[in-house]
């Protein structure tokens, strides 16, 4: 390395000072807990005696051999497999509709975005009120002659009801990213297609969707990360029930740590959650890249 000029030295010293709060914060608040979860996942802490002992892979072996954990994993994967594609399709459809020049388009866009401003826990409270036996949804159903639905109180509908809440809170937010992607497509491409006589459907499938792959991939990956971490509706409304039908991974970690009090198992579960998320995100990137080439 060439010797640094006095000015570069000054800059380097200043950079250390300016970066210290952010970097230290990120180490203490993000890196240390991730490393600690990994380390603690090999320990067992007895709540009765308060003694901590090293147990190797016992916590992982317990989880991977437990039918209950298999059910949690299955529920979480099913939930994500259905919810995330729905979110991508709906937010893209809304973006296509609202990226056009329409009367009052700003108003429609704002109304669709508004649910993204609502805190997730509040979304859960609002929808649970609307899903009561005599709530808004059943009233609307009755008005069009449909029978009452149990929603959150039935093991067949509870998970779908939670998915509906999350989708409601998410699609307006993700729509913004797709709208931004649409605006990046050069107008000249469409003009050329029009001259060639391409119809609406042809322009959509041959130009718009292929050129939207990047923003759509981003929505799929970031949306998946969000859905994997779904927690508030489960903790506030269903506590994982009825019959474990809404016992998603994040809630199970919380329950193991704070209700069962088995911290070692909870930390092992956090590690598995992070690995699972990384794998899912990596697969999605891989698939999307292959499609491109």
């Amino acid at each position: 390395m060439p010797t640094m000029s006095p000015r570069r030295w000054r800059d380097a010293r200043l950079a250390v000072l300016l970066l210290a709060p952010a970097v230290l914060g990120m180490v203490a608040m993000r890196v240390v807990p991730a490393v600690s979860a990994f380390a603690e996942s090999f320990n067992h802490l007895s709540l009765r005696t308060g003694v901590k002992e090293f147990v190797g892979f016992e916590n992982y072996a317990y989880l991977l051999g437990s039918g209950e954990f298999h059910a949690v994993l299955g529920t979480t994967l099913l939930f994500n497999l259905v919810l995330n594609p729905v979110i991508v399709v709906l937010s893209t459809a809304l973006a296509l509709l609202l990226a056009q020049r329409l009367p009052a388009v700003g108003l429609w866009r704002s109304l669709i975005f508004v649910p993204a401003a609502v805190p997730g826990s509040v979304t859960a409270l609002i929808w649970s009120t609307a899903m009561q036996p005599d709530g808004l949804l059943n009233a609307l159903f009755a008005a069009i002659g449909l029978p009452k639905q149990p929603f959150l109180t039935s093991s067949g509908q509870a998970l779908g009801s939670i998915g509906l809440m999350l989708a409601w809170g998410a699609i307006g937010y993700w729509m913004l990213f797709v709208v931004a992607g649409l605006k990046d497509i050069p107008q000249a491409v469409y003009e050329a297609a029009l001259i060639d006589g391409a119809g609406w459907w042809r322009r959509l499938t041959a130009i718009t969707l292929p050129l939207l792959r990047r923003p759509m991939a981003f929505v799929l990956v970031a949306g998946t990360v969000g859905s994997f971490l779904a927690f508030a509706p489960v903790q506030i409304l269903t506590k994982g029930g009825p019959d474990g039908s809404t016992n998603l991974l994040m809630y199970d970690v919380y329950a193991n740590a704070y209700q069962v009090g088995d911290l070692g198992v909870a930390q092992a579960e956090v590690v598995l959650l992070m690995i699972l998320m990384a794998v899912v995100v990596a697969i999605q990137f891989r698939v999307l890249r292959e499609e491109r080439s």
Binding site: V32, A34, V270
Partner: peptide, 18 residues
Amino acid sequence: VILVSMVPFDAIAIPLSG
């Protein structure tokens, strides 16, 4: 900075609370 901000906070919230 980029790598760390890709770790979602809620995933490590429970170990951090300990």
